[in-house]
Computed example of a mutant assay.
Amino acid sequence: MRIPAIHDSGITGDGVTIAVFDGALNPEIANLQGVDLEVRQLDACPDPLAAAASDFEALQHGTSVTSLIVGNGTSDSGVGPVGLAPGVRILYYGSLQEGCEGNPFPAALADAVAQGADIVTMSGGNGRLVEELSQKSADGVAAALRAGVVVVASLPNADSTWEGELGKINGVVNVASVDATAQAAKAQDGSPMTNDDVDVVAPGVDVAGVGWDRTWGMSAWSGNSAATPIVAGLLALAKEKWPDATASQLLQSLIRNTGSAPHELQWSNTFGHGTVNATRVIEEDPSQYPDENPLFTDGQVPTFDEVFAETDPLSTGAPDPSEERVSGVVPWAIAGGVLVAIAVVIVIMISRRKSGGHDNV
């Protein structure tokens, strides 16, 4: 993905805030020292910092996701994961821990929006959340999109027991994975994984992580969970490079500048719109694209009008965070404040059909 060249040009995600929704976290590891990371506590979930450092099963997933965004390149074994956007501010929510009660997603999302998140990334989920997927979740995504927040979510792996709770919610970037040769990750029978909700694919096979070998040195891991923070990090780099671009224009650029060469917009249930291309997304000015979120499908919620209809200018449109309190704990190396300007725009509805390709995208 030629990320070092982008970093060398001075683009690191500085000034951008990413909210990470995952499990427990170990912020004490070498790889996360010096990063701008704040853990937000959800009343419905255990403290994500409570797990012992030796509880690798609880910590490896969320810690590895975070390292792919802001990792400093070190680990207990020397070299470690280098984050795609090491300059971003991270808001961390332990919303996918096993001990969470009910569906903590709406409260976490509302707090992330209120705290100035530009991008929300969630790698994983479980059947309980799917069963409890409510209008509150759809309303929360609608409010986030209306506020100019990009929501990125992983699709289930071939051997997953959970379903993607955000896969059927409009406007979300649904991510699957490819290997180092840009071939689709394999299902259990050896065939390429497919999903009718995939939007883009990113590296997710044998990528750098921590904790997977039961040490806090660098180790390899695989899955759509690994590809998702890579997409979130790339969007953060693009947002820093093109600060005047809207969230919808960044998504337009993400799906139009895939692969190794310019091409017409396309889609398949294996690669979605294609493999993300960091160089092209950074080089291409997103303002050339329509200010229209391209990830809406007829028959799914929220509807386009529910998200982008004109609202009371005195209302933020966000769910009331007081319904389920979220408080900040342990602000790790917090940097300066972030000023977020929110613009509500009127856009034209785009219809996307996932079966047999996309029309009028």
Rank of each mutant, 00 (worst) to 15 (best):
P86R: 11
G357I: 03
K239F: 00
A110L: 06
S287G: 01
L68E: 13
G211R: 11
R214K: 15
P313L: 08
Y289I: 03
A187R: 10
L42E: 12
V307W: 05
F308M: 09
T303V: 03
A85R: 07
G94H: 13
V178D: 03
E324P: 00
A143P: 00
D8M: 08
E324F: 00
S327A: 06
L84H: 03
L96V: 06
S253E: 06
G127A: 11
P104F: 07
T270L: 05
D320N: 15
E306C: 00
G272K: 12
A117R: 01
D285K: 06
A238F: 02
T246K: 06
G94L: 07
A108P: 02
G164V: 02
G259A: 10
G23L: 07
I348H: 10
A236V: 05
F21G: 08
V16R: 15
D43F: 07
G23R: 12
A236F: 07
I69F: 01
G102C: 06
G274K: 12
I348L: 05
D179N: 14
S315T: 04
A184T: 01
D189Q: 08
G140N: 09
L314E: 14
D47N: 15
E132Q: 15
V210A: 09
A232P: 04
A184H: 02
I342H: 15
N72A: 10
L251Q: 15
T17G: 10
G259V: 09
Q115V: 00
V345Y: 10
M349P: 07
A107L: 07
T215K: 11
Y289D: 02
N26A: 13
A341G: 11
S222H: 09
G34I: 08
V329A: 10
E283W: 01
K354M: 11
P243V: 07
V198K: 14
R128Q: 11
G10I: 05
E98M: 07
V113D: 01
A227F: 11
G217R: 07
V281Y: 00
D206M: 13
E57K: 10
L91M: 09
V338S: 13
V150D: 03
A142M: 07
P203R: 13
N293P: 04
Q249L: 09
Q135L: 09
Q60M: 13
A236Q: 07
N157K: 08
G71W: 02
A226L: 10
E98H: 08
P48M: 08
G167C: 05
H263A: 15
P104C: 05
D8C: 03
A143M: 04
A341R: 13
N103A: 12
W216D: 04
R89V: 04
V149Q: 14
V35R: 14
A318H: 02
I29Y: 05
